[in-house]
Design a protein around this nucleic acid. Structure first.
Lengths: 161, 161
DNA sequence: TATTGTTATACTCTATAACTATA
DNA sequence: TATAGTTATAGAGTATAACAATA
């Protein structure tokens, strides 16, 4: 019997264990990747005591001047109460301006301060490097495909909730 | 100028925002998928107040009778202290037996009780259904490829840490 | 009434280090 | 001395609901 016929994947599993149903479980796998992401984060990823979500907030504010906290919450898949905490700290630290919208004063229009812009410039480079480092074990085509599939998965669930 | 030439991906982004560098960031994307996974979890996924990691522990013990807590920690990418808490609760609930190994009494050999086996039988079905539900927006080939890439990514980082 | 954002609260998850017991 | 597991603790992440301000 030829050995090449439908070899059973032989996925190396952490600790040499039999993965059982976990091998094809998206919950387990994404949790595992999150752990890998955390472990590969450089100590200086979050400059000056910034929290993880605050970097993502900076990224989105930088790319969407005047965005509201509600839209930010949707984009980051966070509760609005969580966004309040994230933004409040960024405001206190002087990285973000939070102004009530002129047309509808329920909204906060968020923007980066000069200091926030400078911080983001430094941070974004580290952020991209970190992501690249995590993805390094994959070939270029695989990296693109993984990102595409994750984007599609998230996008699909958010467009039809 | 033809509009079809290298269209800019047009990835729909939550909240209609410009994703900026987050679009290709593995940290952001996996965090987003984790949120989707959580939101799609049925209320009865974890029967009887079980915690998330406890299901994964059941899965691994079921597939690896007599496994040690250390190997479990590696496979689940958890700290051993975290595994202690997870297992302790499963032991108290009567789902898991924890016996000092006969050959080296530092090790605990974990196994499912009859009750734990019955629980796992029920839970594993819900677990697989949950994963399938989350993956549903992807085509079958895409699902396979996403799982393969996540497995490869995790496996690569754990084999050469 | 409905929506944006805030506050308060609780629970889960994760990380660290000191400790024990076995080897 | 090295390893498996335990304990204690702190911090980060997340979910819920009640609330104020604005529309």
């Amino acid at each position: 019997m030829p050995t090449s016929r439908k070899a059973p994947a032989a996925t190396p599993f952490p600790g040499g264990l039999n993965p059982g149903v976990l091998r094809d479980n998206i919950s387990y796998l994404t949790r595992a990747v999150r752990a890998v992401v955390q472990q590969n984060a450089p100590d200086d990823l979050e400059e000056g005591g910034l929290l993880a979500g605050q970097l993502a907030a900076l990224a989105l504010i930088a790319a969407n001047e005047g965005v509201s906290q509600n839209d930010l919450a949707r984009a980051m898949l966070m509760k609005k109460s969580q966004v309040t905490a994230v933004i409040q700290d960024l405001v206190v630290r002087g990285h973000v301006d939070r102004l009530a919208s002129a047309t509808d004063r329920r909204y906060n229009a968020l923007s980066l301060t000069a200091q926030g812009t400078a911080l983001w410039k430094r941070s974004s480079e580290r952020m991209v490097k970190h992501s690249d480092a995590v993805m390094k074990p994959l070939a270029a085509a695989e990296r693109r495909e993984l990102l595409r599939l994750l984007q599609k998965l998230v996008g699909s669930h958010l467009s039809e909730p």
